[in-house]
Simulated assay, not measured.
Amino acid sequence: MYHYGHHHRLPCLRCHPHSYIRMVQHLIERCLLLHMSRDQCVKALAKHASVHPLVTLTVWRELQQENREFFHAYFHSISPRHFTSRRTRRVLRLTREI
């Protein structure tokens, strides 16, 4: 019924596909909470949960299609350009105050 990973019981993709997809979705959501990029999420799930990258990418795409506005805002918030511009504005504001 289930196979064992590193101390975790994980659903089997072939035996319980719906449970497996829900698990991958949950793991992706945890990656989003950690502000991880798609590629970081794919690597983390492959390494720590033995989720095949194609499965993660497929579930990610489905989530992205269902939640376009969220992902647009999410990608904007984690983009290096966004961090750089925020950091630059903060430095400029601090230098004006001095």
Rank of each mutant, 00 (worst) to 15 (best):
I78P: 08
T84W: 08
H82D: 08
L54H: 15
S85D: 13
H72M: 09
S77L: 03
R9W: 04
Q40T: 05
S37M: 00
R68K: 08
E62D: 09
H52Q: 07
P80H: 07
L10F: 03
L10T: 10
E62C: 15
L27A: 04
S79G: 04
R81E: 10
H16K: 06
F70D: 12
Y74E: 00
V42T: 10
S37N: 10
S50E: 12
L13A: 03
T95I: 13
L10W: 02
M23T: 10
Y20I: 00
M36F: 09
P53T: 04
H8W: 03
L57F: 12
V91Y: 06
H76T: 14
L63Q: 15
F75H: 15
V91E: 03
E29N: 06
F83I: 10
C12K: 02
L92K: 02
H7E: 04
F75P: 06
L54N: 14
R30T: 02
L45H: 05
T58Q: 13
H26L: 11
H35P: 14
L32V: 10
S37I: 02
N67I: 06
L13C: 04
T88Q: 12
V55K: 09
W60I: 08
R30L: 11
F71T: 00
P17L: 00
I21S: 05
S19E: 11
H18N: 09
L34H: 08
R22Q: 11
Y4W: 12
M36H: 10
T56Y: 02
S79K: 11
I28N: 15
Q40W: 02
K47E: 12
Y4T: 04
R61T: 12
R93Y: 07
P53Y: 07
H16M: 00
F75T: 01
S79R: 01
H18C: 12
V91R: 05
S79D: 13
F83R: 12
E69C: 07
Q25P: 11
T84S: 14
L54M: 14
E69T: 13
T95R: 15
